[in-house]
């Protein structure tokens, strides 16, 4: 990758992995916040209702599907952009 030696790639991979762990905590927190906000709005009881639990679960599924889709689109767009830049095009 970009002319890095094996040991440099190892250092890079370690750093990225550590960074991703930290990122993950933030992303996980955002997911909980967003699904909680959308799904839980009744505080007559302290237990999550069946409806709320179902909503949370669908919210997570949808989030995963969204992320997967956005990952694919992002890769495509990024590849097209790289190509455009390499051609020196505007």
């Amino acid at each position: 990758m970009d002319g890095l030696t094996n040991s440099e790639q190892q250092i890079l991979a370690d750093r990225i992995q550590k960074w991703q762990m930290k990122q993950f905590m933030g992303i996980f927190g955002n997911l909980v916040d967003s699904c909680f906000t959308s799904c839980v709005d009744d505080f007559q009881s302290k237990a999550l209702s069946g409806r709320e639990t179902g909503c949370l679960s669908r919210c997570v599924s949808k989030w995963m599907a969204t992320n997967e889709r956005m990952g694919e689109r992002f890769a495509e767009l990024n590849a097209a952009e790289m190509e455009r830049q390499q051609r020196g095009g505007r």
Binding site: C35, S38, K62, W63, M70, F74
Partner: peptide, 30 residues
């Protein structure tokens, strides 16, 4: 470069879900 790209992708997913997803979550699929 990797961090910038990953962050951009995360932001994009977040913002586009805010704009596009039905927040009632009657369905678990898109």
């Amino acid at each position: 470069e990797i961090k910038v790209m990953t962050e951009m992708q995360t932001r994009m997913a977040k913002i586009c879900s805010q704009k596009c997803l039905d927040r009632t979550y009657r369905e678990g699929e898109l």
